[in-house]
């Protein structure tokens, strides 16, 4: 198992290298000249040829492409993503707190998603075709289909305005987590519990379930076995949900004025703040690779066959 984990980890390193290179290339394929963006952002009234050359030198843009990439990559490794073109502050000092806020929101949501999906999935699978199953699936269909801004608006109106129980926005106390977390979790859990449900139903007809019953094992042990075998599909989905939520909290963060990555990224993209965008893409891509690796490791722990494949 440890051998597998080390191998799997090593494989993700070249992937990260490729991602960092692609990020760098894509940004530099942009038709805009970074020097011009910087000067515009600094509010320089007349952009002269001289000024452009000077700025390029300051930013190191006169260097060959590969050298620039290597320099950028080396500093990225030390979490130095350069300075923001717009504010002049180090990118990391802006990105880190926003990232942390989004991570907090994501982690709490992911936890709720996992708990909700497993509980609903198991209950629905065991009550297949009965009222409970039909009701849960019906409600989840409705809630998943609803856009998250609509759901957010309804919840804010009900719980914050009408009942005055929860804060409308911001990130001031634990209670500010409740509404955004519900909005995120409900839409994902509504999809994921179906994966667990159908996977459980598939496993229900497996021979090992029949043999377990034939040996007189109690139902709760059999359910546990089925769940463990059903989780394989779900683990990958759950682990990938974390980076997906990290990158897609824009709507929810804007609705609830959450000072996170979503709001920051939109601002950076609109002001063409290249170092910020680069860092944002790199951080998210790293999160994707990281969680993919983690999901493979968890799957290998559940499914011994996978360990031998690498």
């Amino acid at each position: 198992m440890y051998k597998y984990m080390i191998k799997r980890f090593l494989i993700s390193i070249p992937l990260l290298l490729i991602i960092s290179f692609l990020t760098f290339v894509l940004i530099h394929l942009s038709p805009l000249d970074p020097a011009e963006v910087v000067l515009q952002a600094q509010g320089v009234p007349v952009i002269t040829e001289e000024l452009m050359v000077q700025t390029k030198q300051e930013l190191g843009l006169d260097q060959p492409f590969l050298i620039r990439y290597l320099a950028w990559f080396a500093s990225c490794l030390q979490l130095d993503f350069g300075d923001s073109y717009v504010t002049g502050q180090p990118v990391w000092s802006l990105l880190a707190p926003a990232f942390l806020n989004t991570v907090k929101l994501t982690m709490v949501s992911a936890l709720l998603i996992i708990v909700l999906s497993i509980v609903l999935g198991v209950v629905c699978a065991l009550r297949e075709g009965k009222m409970t199953d039909k009701t849960v699936r019906g409600i989840s269909f409705f809630v998943t289909a609803m856009p998250s801004y609509a759901l957010a608006a309804i919840l804010i109106w009900l719980f914050s305005v009408k009942l005055d129980l929860l804060p409308t926005s911001g990130m001031n106390s634990l209670s500010s987590y409740i509404l955004p977390v519900i909005v995120i979790a409900v839409s994902y859990a509504g999809l994921y519990f179906r994966i667990i449900r159908s996977s459980m139903l598939n496993n229900l007809n497996e021979n090992y379930v029949m043999y377990g019953r034939a040996c007189g094992l109690p139902e709760h042990k059999i359910t546990k076995t089925i769940l463990r075998n059903s989780l394989q599909v779900a683990v990958s989905v759950f682990c990938m949900a974390v980076p997906i939520i990290l990158g897609s909290t824009v709507v929810v963060e804007n609705m609830f004025a959450w000072p996170g990555l979503g709001s920051l990224s939109v601002k950076s993209i609109l002001s063409r703040d290249f170092p910020m965008i680069q860092a944002y893409v790199l951080v998210l891509a790293t999160a994707f690779v990281l969680f993919n690796t983690v999901s493979d490791m968890i799957n290998a722990a559940i499914n011994p066959k996978l360990r031998e494949g690498l």
Binding site: N207, Y208, Y211, T225, N229, P304
Partner: peptide, 10 residues
């Protein structure tokens, strides 16, 4: 089927 009679995950 002996091959599928036992829980594959343990």
């Amino acid at each position: 089927h002996g091959m599928s009679a036992f829980d594959p995950s343990t």
